[in-house]
């Protein structure tokens, strides 16, 4: 942050100053105003400020021209030049229009402190939400849970009691916030295990005694409802399509539900979850039991 904005402006401004050289002799202010040390009590006038305004307008025009070619719109290439140009504009306004160049250095320090801190806060938030954020493990890939592997592969070698009676230690289950412990107890069908586990259905859907999600429609009695929802679809077909292609039909008040559900939400949240054909069949089989 310690770059002297006067210098930055100076570099960007060289051409203009050269063109306006002839005016400099009558008003020594122009080059000194922008680049030199200005003694107290000396101020700019129409000439200096007008020049700066033209300069700023030209930068704005350049910024606009940079993104006119369609190939450049939204591409990463233009970010650096655009940021640099707007930083130049920013400091020109601060240094000359706000005449911070000619003020007590304390004012610089105060403003730069706030500015730098604001920048650091914004940057660190962007980094924390972007680069440094770990990929959510549960949704990244379908996989066997390593702990289970370990138990299966070294069945004999493990001395302590085997976790038969323990709930499956699948971490996605921990991420499904409302899955009650009982849901994964012995006797749960493979479909139900998937429902509260790796498929993460329980994050959004409610089934009495199994899951309490609020974002998607409740699934109690879905087998009965599904049979009548779209004419020509059997319950099984409807449920399978709703899992595989959630956007094909989004349920809502028209189906007697209490609210309209958000179109596209399920496909977006399920984007990272890969279900095999057996998984889908297991889920369909489980949901068809909910009459």
């Amino acid at each position: 942050m310690s770059t002297n904005p006067g210098q930055e402006a100076a570099m960007a401004h060289d051409e203009h100053a050269a063109h306006e050289e002839h005016a400099a002799h009558e008003d020594a202010g122009i080059s000194r105003f922008f680049f030199g040390h200005v003694p107290e009590g000396v101020h700019g006038g129409l000439k200096q400020y007008g020049l700066l305004a033209i300069f700023l307008a030209i930068i704005t025009l350049i910024e606009f021209l940079i993104i006119v070619p369609e190939g450049l719109q939204g591409s990463g290439v233009v970010i650096a030049p655009l940021v640099i140009l707007s930083v130049i504009k920013f400091f020109c306004v601060v240094a000359f229009f706000m005449h911070l160049k000619f003020e007590h250095e304390l004012l610089w320090q105060i403003f730069v402190a706030g500015l730098a801190l604001g920048l650091v806060v914004a940057l660190s938030l962007v980094l924390l939400f972007g680069v440094f954020r770990p990929t959510p493990r549960a949704f990244s890939e379908p996989r066997q849970v390593p702990f289970e592997h370990h138990v299966e592969d070294h069945h004999e070698a493990v001395a302590r009691p085997l976790p038969d009676e323990l709930p499956p230690p699948a971490d996605p289950a921990d991420l499904a916030p409302a899955a009650p412990a009982g849901a994964t107890a012995a006797g749960a069908s493979p479909g139900q295990t998937l429902f509260v586990g790796t498929a993460a259905c329980a994050s959004c859907h409610t089934i009495q005694g199994v899951a309490q999600g609020v974002l998607g429609p409740p699934l109690d009695g879905i087998a009965s409802a599904a049979a009548n929802r779209i004419s020509g679809y059997s319950a099984e077909e409807y449920i399978r399509e709703s899992i595989v292609e959630p956007d094909a039909y989004t349920a809502g008040t028209a189906d007697g539900l209490s609210q309209d559900y958000q179109q596209g939400l399920m496909s977006a949240t399920m984007a990272g979850i890969v279900l095999s054909d057996e998984d889908v069949e297991a889920l369909v089989e489980y949901l068809l039991q909910l009459r």
Binding site: V77, I79, A80, F129, V131, R133
Partner: peptide, 13 residues
């Protein structure tokens, strides 16, 4: 995370 990287590398480029 990918977008974040793109953003940062775009900034550097």
């Amino acid at each position: 995370a990918v977008q974040g990287w793109n953003w940062v590398t775009g900034l550097i480029s």
